[in-house]
């Protein structure tokens, strides 16, 4: 049938037997969702890259802005804390141990935090915001939060490189422990994907989530040990902080400069629990509502 037209003339047209769909209800099977998601992997990359590049299109400096903005933050932190205030943080929390510039200490935590903040702000509303595209053509709806998170990965890489430069200038010198950034980055990306996927689907039904997420991010910034060391907290509060989704990646990045809490792995376990629970919930929600998510827009 592939090469036969209605006129019986060979055309060499390639059919797409692997494509197409059968719909009987609002959901899709987990296996099918995974297969379709895998088929959409290039789409996610292309859209994320487009969204990142388009931001700087009309500017005369273009992509330089993507570097300048985090660099300014790094410089301000370095000048204010290292030179104006002169604060240092004792590495490993041991008194008398080696110290690190407080600016580097904060910036190391800002790398995963800024990513998480940007990814979640865009990701949690991505399905509703992506209506224009999603209503006209089908792809798994979870592609939309993935694109939002993917777009934020570009600045994550840029800030991580700036952090390395900062370490080179202000110390501690980058070394093997710097590699702790990698699990830190993987964990924060995975968390952003899980939370965005779940919230973006729930947001279709509960529009309050757009503002609830903003409020939660604002709170998280202060209760996650980003601008202060975790080991300065009283033990009871530290247990609460360990239960936060964001504390794990922050501690892993701190560990890359050798300044993590001694019990850093407990924060990581807290984040992993969030990752598994919310990730599963998001997956189930998308499986059950994938084909009707754009109905309520």
């Amino acid at each position: 049938m592939a090469t036969d037209t209605t006129l019986g003339v060979a055309t060499g047209r390639v059919p797409h037997p692997e494509e197409g769909f059968e719909l009987t209800g609002p959901g899709t099977t987990p296996g099918l969702l995974v297969r379709e998601l895998w088929a959409s992997r290039r789409l996610i990359g292309v859209l994320a890259r487009k969204d990142f590049l388009v931001r700087y299109r009309r500017t005369s400096l273009g992509l330089i802005w993507a570097v300048v903005l985090p660099a300014v933050q790094a410089i301000v932190l370095a000048v204010v804390f290292s030179h104006v205030i002169g604060a240092t943080h004792r590495l490993g929390g041991v008194s008398g141990g080696p110290t690190t510039a407080y600016g580097v200490f904060i910036f190391a935590a800002m790398v995963p935090w800024s990513f998480f903040n940007a990814a979640l702000a865009a990701g949690s509303t991505s399905v509703v915001d992506g209506t224009g595209l999603a209503r006209r053509i089908y792809f798994p709806r979870v592609v939309l939060p993935l694109v939002a998170v993917g777009t934020a990965v570009y600045p994550l890489v840029i800030t991580a490189i700036i952090l390395l430069g900062m370490e080179g200038i202000l110390g501690p010198e980058p070394g093997v422990r710097t590699l702790w950034m990698i699990p830190g980055a993987v964990l924060v990306i995975a968390l952003a994907v899980a939370l965005s996927a779940f919230i973006s689907a729930a947001h279709v039904y509960i529009r309050d989530l757009r503002y609830a997420v903003q409020a939660a991010l604002l709170m998280l910034f202060y209760i996650t040990p980003v601008i202060y060391p975790a080991d300065r907290l009283p033990l009871s509060i530290r247990h609460v902080v360990m239960a936060l989704p964001t504390a794990g990646p922050v501690e892993l990045f701190r560990r890359s400069i050798g300044a993590a809490d001694q019990q850093w792995w407990k924060y990581v376990v807290g984040s992993l629990v969030w990752l598994v629970v919310v990730g599963l919930a998001g997956f189930v929600l998308h499986c059950r509502r994938d084909r009707v998510l754009t109905d309520r827009l």
Partner: peptide, 25 residues
């Protein structure tokens, strides 16, 4: 297009769908 599912009944489409509703999507 496959962007919404029926509340009841079954719909089946074989092959690749190109919606021209999406001109310039």
């Amino acid at each position: 297009c496959g962007v919404t599912a029926p509340s009841s009944g079954r719909i089946r489409v074989r092959g690749r769908v190109a919606p021209l509703i999406s001109v310039g999507v």
